[in-house]
Design a binder for these strands. Structure first.
Lengths: 327, 327
DNA sequence: ATATTATGTGTAACCGGTTACACACCGAAA
DNA sequence: TTTCGGTGTGTAACCGGTTACACATAATAT
């Protein structure tokens, strides 16, 4: 392995000059620059990032902390983060937290010892002070940890209004809203949006809390559908719940979308594969991840951050679980 | 930050002794051990992994190279790798290769500079010599790179036989096999298994190549179903293709499973959410990832590896796209 | 009794970089 | 002419560990 000393020797200068040239710090004469460039080229020198880290107490590692990569929402996010990290020369460390503060803390500490450059955190039970005191750049997804930490999230409330109105415009008179877990920020924003839209319609509705879990929501929806057969629309806070609702409908014998219309939230790939295809309020997850990564890297590189809060627009995708709009 | 020197001073010994104690290498008296333990405790000393890496040219980073985490097969794999890595004190770096040898090479080189401990590689167009010469522990998934590199894969052929027989036992007389891309090893093994099972049945069949992509397979299946209305069973090489087939069936007006039975391959979560639920040959992806990680870590830690080839059994999951077995 | 081996420890070199500091040179300002 | 700030460079300390080597002592073998 060739080191900076080899380069210095070959170029006929000191290691300090080589280092200065490589880092573009301090003065280096054109002459020296040329000699170093040539030596680097000839020896195929590549800087050792570990040695550098030891000095600078910095690395190009980014920690991506998320509850569970297995949850269909996260792979795309991870992909986006990785893509932009790569273009900026950063490497992504994957951390599944299971929403467990202990695990999160552990990761943060382990990685800080490696001089990690920053974290992108998607978590719902963030130990706020813990993060705030982490003393390392952080970007949060879907949750404000503290005013100083930039946050990116979907426009959940707006999306919920869109989704509700989609059902209303298509003639629903008794909507069931599948509310997500209360400890989830986005779920609450969606709930707010739904309430705002439904209340201004003066129509009948019903709210049931339901985890973002297929079998559970299937069961819950089947029960509710039996209790109240007049329900003609379901707005689920997640596509997984919507899938459960769709399955429940088929078990209960409700035809979708003729007797019952369903709208989901998230826009995961699976929605397209269902029969009928799931109408949903799609988040631009890739964009969220990309923005989070870019903002984090800006922070890391001490560039000015123009904004502390990023809201990514959401899009209604009409597929087969809804009918065409009534005139 | 407290360093090994601080500990040495407080314990009244030299840094060498502290280091020996910490690494359990060389001789350390009980007395010294006690003093060091106390000092570590008191100063809350934590070893700096970067400094150690610089010396030992080792780290506890594991690179996970896969085509695209967004592909539903991989999140669970990544999760498994991460879980076992964590229990052994390793950290996982996520690398999306897009099956691009250039990107893979890049990752390998970048991470080797960081003294990465090893790689788990899932790729189908591996630049074999490149990996073989990487000079770092590797475990491959679904493809043999070279005899020296341990490989873990599903029992694809056996699984395909099971899937085919499931259709046969349920009365299918004209099966359509959706073969996966030829450059994929597992797809070929599945094809082999299907051929073996179908040929010993002397029944009619048809093979069509079809990418692991929803919209494409939907289109292909819809066409084939129209051309040959006597097809009464479809065995798809992946669940995504199977989902496409299911959708095609509903568009063409074939009732599933009454007129047409479908079996997929993979066992992704989405299968359960379809209506009817997808009968499939499920891979134990988590297990594959866990084994791969364990084997890699064994290699890294120079423990004996008893096996070079691991085949993880596959399991038939019967759901709604197949009927009950005929007597 | 001496030779040999096992045990225990400290000094200092080393891993491969970064950077504070000292110093030399040059042109411009005083 | 002196003074001074901008250039340009090298030496050596430092980041925080590991480890080769030298040395000392105790235990065992001969």
């Amino acid at each position: 392995m060739t080191t900076i000393k080899d380069v210095a020797k070959k170029a006929g200068v000191s290691v300090a000059t080589v280092s200065r040239f490589l880092n573009d710090s301090g003065y280096v004469s054109a002459e020296a620059a040329k000699a170093v460039t040539a030596a680097v080229e000839e020896l195929k020198y590549e800087l050792n990032p570990v040695a550098r880290s030891l000095n600078t107490k910095k690395s190009n590692l980014i920690g991506l902390i998320l509850p569970d990569i297995t949850n269909p929402f996260f792979p795309e996010l991870a992909r986006a983060v990785e893509d932009v990290a790569l273009t900026y020369g950063y490497t992504v460390v994957l951390c599944n937290s299971d929403e467990n503060p202990e695990k999160e803390k552990n990761y943060i500490e382990t990685l800080k010892k490696k001089y990690i450059a920053g974290f992108i955190v998607t978590s719902n039970q963030l130990d706020a002070p813990h993060y705030a005191n982490a003393n390392v750049p952080i970007v949060a997804l879907d949750r404000t940890i503290n005013e100083k930490i930039p946050t990116v999230s979907s426009n959940n409330k707006e999306g919920a209004i869109m989704g509700t109105n989609a059902l209303l415009e298509r003639g629903c008179r008794n909507i069931l809203f599948l509310r997500g877990p209360e400890e989830l920020n986005p779920a609450n924003d969606r709930y707010e949006g739904f309430m705002e839209a439904i209340q201004s319609s003066n129509l009948q509705y019903q709210v049931v809390t339901c985890p973002f879990h297929f079998a559970d929501s299937q069961e819950i929806v089947a029960r509710v559908l039996k209790e109240d057969p007049t329900i003609d629309g379901i707005f689920a806070s997640s596509d997984v719940s919507a899938a459960g609702a769709l399955k429940a409908a088929s078990l209960v014998g409700k035809r979708v979308p003729e007797e019952l219309q369903i709208v989901g939230f998230d826009g995961v790939a699976m929605g397209e594969m269902l029969s009928p295809g799931l109408t949903t309020v799609a988040q631009d997850v890739y964009k969220m991840g990309a923005i989070a990564a870019r903002v984090l890297i800006k922070q890391i590189e001490n560039k000015k951050i123009d904004q502390r809060f990023y809201e990514v627009p959401v899009k209604l995708i009409i597929r087969g679980t809804t009918r065409s709009v009534e005139e």
